[in-house]
Write a protein that binds this DNA or RNA. Structure first.
Lengths: 162, 162
DNA sequence: AAAGAGACGTTATTATATAACTCTTTGCTT
DNA sequence: AAGCAAAGAGTTATATAATAACGTCTCTTT
């Protein structure tokens, strides 16, 4: 029932990255939007790990690798595009961004974020949480547009390590 | 089953304010912490409506009424105190603060926020959402520490008005 | 009175995000 | 192919949110 993005101790993370990029290409092609080199590079950087990444972290990397100093709008435009197309999620509690593990279908991101290792685990939609929120909203006549569910705590791996 | 903070079209809002302040006095007395004039004033301002209020909005009011120009730390210290003592909640999606309608018991805030009237409706704890989150967390061995649930959409009143 | 703690003032700075304008690239139309 | 419109991206400046660091005042406790 429960499924998370595949985050494990020793997984071959380059596979996550290449899968994500490939998936992004597909999604963009299908929608007729352009995954430009900059956008692709930003996505790649967001996917460097399963830890949410700040806009200014991305900016720093871009600046270093480009020589010339990239400015905030460069990164934010990339992030905005990726957000609009569901290729990444924004975590409001951290002001940070993370790759979406199933961008084919529009959905809200539900996250469990480990305070220790900083990994963020995305829960799939149609979870119990989704049902519970819809139900409560319906009871009060509230029409849901966007949702923000971010749970902070300690993940299983970190807990066992301690 | 469902309960929200009492936000209705024509409610006597000064009652919300005075109740909140009284409740805050109680809570602080009980815990042996000081609800200083500044802290009380910040709480009062947060309670001016059921719409989340930004720190700099509060700052502006304080500045105007004090003559001297209040500085950010003044407000943030007040807000921090109120947050620590569960008298207000912070809404990460809006970078804003809102009065807590039942500060006697420590709890996470679950909110439905209307994009039109800007009112934020706090759901009580032990709702279905709480259960769903705990359940999902348990399944993945995740130890929950803090939760953030903010649902944006249109409230019943605004929907009917339209 | 001296010492220590808590609350708050004050100045400066950090972190996050956007506005407004420019120029270039891209793809489309003729 | 030339011209055009729109999208993309560079650049500078600024807005918005939050914190750091230090000083002062006022209590309380001794």
């Amino acid at each position: 029932m429960l499924k998370t993005s595949t985050v494990c101790q020793s997984h071959q993370h380059h596979q996550c990255i290449s899968q994500a990029l490939e998936s992004a290409e597909d999604v963009c092609a299908q929608r007729g939007v352009r995954l430009t080199p900059l956008r692709k590079r930003v996505l790649e950087l967001v996917w460097q790990s399963h830890k949410p990444l700040g806009a200014y972290d991305i900016l720093e990397v871009l600046s270093r690798e480009d020589g010339r100093r990239a400015a905030p709008p460069t990164v934010y435009r990339g992030l905005d595009f990726l957000l609009e197309n569901g290729l990444i999620h924004r975590l409001a509690s951290l002001n940070a961004y993370i790759g979406c593990s199933h961008p084919e279908v529009a959905h809200e991101g539900y996250f469990m974020i480990c305070k220790q290792c900083n990994n963020a685990y995305e829960l799939v939609q149609h979870s119990q949480i989704d049902t519970a929120i819809s139900s409560e909203a319906e009871q009060m006549g509230f029409t849901v547009e966007t949702q923000m569910v971010e749970i902070l705590g300690i993940c299983a791996a970190c807990r066992e390590a301690a």
